[in-house]
Design a protein around this nucleic acid. Structure first.
Length: 324
DNA sequence: TTGTGTTTTATTGCCTCC
DNA sequence: GGAGGCAATAAAACACAA
C-alpha cells in the first residue's frame, strides 16, 4: 500500500515559517501535495518532538507567526506558553476561522488544491488542516442529510399509512353501500314477483348481480383499490366500471370502454344504480384534490421522492437520498 | 468537582482515479 | 504509484447535569 505522506507543516503562510508538524507512530506523512517536504527538515528551528500521536511544534521567530490561534488577543502569552508546555494538545479552530471555513464550504464543499492553499494562508492554518476540516465537514453534512432523509421517509410512511387506512375505510363504506343497494333491489324484485306471479324472472337473478358486485368489492385488495382511485382520474373510469359490470369480470382493470350494448333494460337500470353512487362519490373528490387530502398526501409523497441521479442521469431509476 | 455525553480535530486503512 | 476521498476510529475539547 502506498504510504501517504502527511507533513503537517508545509508552509501555509508562504513565508518559510514552519508552524507545526504532526507525526504518527504508523507512518510519517507529508502534507498534501501542495507543498514539498523541503520545509520539514528545517534546521535551526526551535522544536520539540513528542512521540506517537503527538504534535511537534515549530516556531518561526522571524515573524512571530505560529498558528494564528495564538495571535488572537484573547489567547495571549499564557496560552502560547501553555501550548509549548503541552504541545500534544489538540487546538480547536477559532470561531472566526470556522465561520470563514463554513462560508467557503457553502460555496463549494470540495477543495481544490489552490483553494486549500489560499484558505490556509488566509486563516494561518496548515493546508492539511483545511483539508481535514473539509473532510470532516463533508462527513457531518452527509450525516445530517441522512437524518433528513430518514425523517422524510418516516413522514412519507405515515402519510401512506394514513392513506391506506383511509382507503380501507372507503372500501368498507362502499361495501355497505353495495349491500344496501342490493337489498333494496332484491326487495324491489321480490315485490315485483309477488305482484306479478306470471313474471318469468327468476328470483335468483338479482342475487347473481349482488354476488358479482360484492365479489368485485371483496376481491379487490387495497392496492388495487388504490389503482382504481388513480384510474378514476381518467374520463374512461365510469364507462370502465360499467363495462366491468357488463362483463361481470371482477379481475378486469383495463376499463376499456365497451359501447356495444346501449340497451336500457332492467339490468342497465341496476348498473346505473350501482355506478352512480360509486362514481358520484369517488370522482369529484379525486379530481378536486383539495377535497381529498389523502390523495394530496400521496401525490406529495411521490413528488418528495423524486430525485435525480447525476451519475446515470435517469430521474426515474433512482431516488436522490438513496444514492451517495 | 466530577462523571458522562457530544463535538471537533486528526489518524489510519482502503479505495478510486489518473 | 502518488494524490485525494471516504469510513471508521481515537482522543482532546467542550457542555452540562448532579
Amino acid at each position: 500500500m502506498a504510504a501517504r505522506s502527511y507533513l503537517y507543516g508545509g508552509d501555509a503562510a508562504g513565508d518559510g515559517a514552519f508552524n507545526s508538524v504532526m507525526l504518527t507512530n504508523k507512518r510519517v506523512s507529508c502534507s498534501s501535495s501542495s507543498k514539498p517536504l523541503d520545509s520539514f527538515f528545517v534546521s535551526g528551528s526551535s522544536h520539540s518532538f513528542i512521540g506517537s500521536r503527538s504534535m511537534v511544534s515549530f516556531e518561526d521567530k522571524r515573524n512571530g507567526s505560529f498558528f494564528r490561534v495564538f495571535d488572537q488577543e484573547d489567547n495571549g502569552d499564557d496560552e502560547y506558553d501553555d501550548y509549548f508546555q503541552h504541545p500534544e494538545k489538540k487546538r480547536r479552530l477559532k470561531a472566526d476561522q470556522v465561520e470563514f471555513l463554513e462560508k467557503s464550504f457553502e460555496t463549494e464543499n470540495k477543495l481544490e488544491p489552490e483553494r486549500k492553499i489560499q484558505l490556509a494562508k488566509e486563516l494561518g492554518l496548515q493546508p492539511r488542516q483545511i483539508a481535514i476540516w473539509f473532510q470532516n465537514r463533508r462527513a457531518r453534512w452527509k450525516t445530517k442529510q441522512l437524518e433528513k432523509d430518514y425523517d422524510l421517509l418516516q413522514e412519507t410512511y405515515n402519510q401512506l399509512k394514513a392513506n391506506y387506512d383511509n382507503l380501507l375505510q372507503e372500501k368498507e363504506k362502499l361495501k355497505s353501500q353495495v349491500l344496501d343497494l342490493s337489498d333494496k333491489l332484491l326487495l324491489q324484485e321480490t315485490e315485483k314477483g309477488t305482484s306479478d306471479s306470471s313474471s318469468t324472472k327468476s328470483p335468483s337473478e338479482p342475487l347473481q348481480h349482488e354476488e358479482n358486485i360484492v365479489d368485485y368489492v371483496n376481491d379487490e385488495d387495497v392496492t388495487k383499490t388504490s389503482n382504481v382511485v388513480s384510474e378514476s382520474s381518467s374520463p374512461r373510469y365510469i364507462d370502465g366500471v360499467q363495462s366491468l359490470l357488463e362483463k361481470g369480470d371482477s379481475s378486469n382493470y383495463l376499463f376499456e370502454q365497451d359501447q356495444s350494448d346501449e340497451s336500457l333494460d332492467e339490468e342497465d337500470n341496476f348498473k346505473k344504480m350501482f355506478v352512480t353512487p360509486v362514481s358520484g362519490y369517488m370522482l369529484p373528490k379525486i379530481e378536486n384534490a383539495g377535497d381529498y387530502p389523502e390523495l394530496d398526501a400521496v401525490n406529495s409523497c411521490y413528488l418528495g421522492f423524486h430525485g435525480h441521479d447525476h451519475d446515470h442521469d435517469n430521474e426515474h431509476q433512482s431516488f436522490g437520498f438513496w444514492s451517495y
